[in-house]
């Protein structure tokens, strides 16, 4: 058991689960997507990026890049929510909700790749 591995794995998987938590439900229904969930997903994703910085191995580089993609997508999603159609004070309309959730779906894919690579790396090293 390795403390580093525990922390690392915990945050990578948490980023994925929070992301899933945000996107599930009807795509355009504002009632199914919580702003707080999106906020938490973004925070954890940023934190994960921080953990990944400094790994010199090949797999570390790819993990970092997937993390950067997920950050970018989530930041865009939050920006759309905050800036368009009256900001966060009003319930978002149909078009705006579709844009936000689509962006979050993109981040979900990047997070999924991250977890996949983490698992396969662990299996490959076999120790």
């Amino acid at each position: 058991m390795n403390l580093e591995k525990i922390i690392f794995g915990f945050f990578i998987v948490l980023a994925l689960t929070l992301n899933v938590g945000f996107v599930v439900g009807e795509l355009a229904n504002p009632g199914h997507h919580s702003l707080w969930m999106l906020f938490a997903a973004l925070l954890v994703s940023l934190l994960t990026t921080g953990l990944k910085i400094g790994d010199r191995s090949q797999i570390g580089a790819v993990l970092l890049s997937t993390s950067l993609v997920s950050n970018l997508q989530l930041i865009l999603a939050v920006s759309v929510w905050a800036v368009l159609e009256g900001g966060m004070d009003v319930v978002p309309g149909h078009d705006k909700m579709v844009a936000i959730v689509s962006l979050a779906y993109g981040a979900l894919v990047a997070n999924g790749v991250s977890v996949l690579m983490l698992v396969s790396d662990t299996l490959m090293s076999r120790r």
Binding site: L3, I7, G50, G54, D55, R56
Partner: peptide, 25 residues
Amino acid sequence: QNSYTLYYLHTGHEEPRGYFAFWLA
């Protein structure tokens, strides 16, 4: 090819990966 593997082979324990892990260690 992998300096982390070489480190493990030499010392027997994993080298911390990433700055945070390094700081933690």
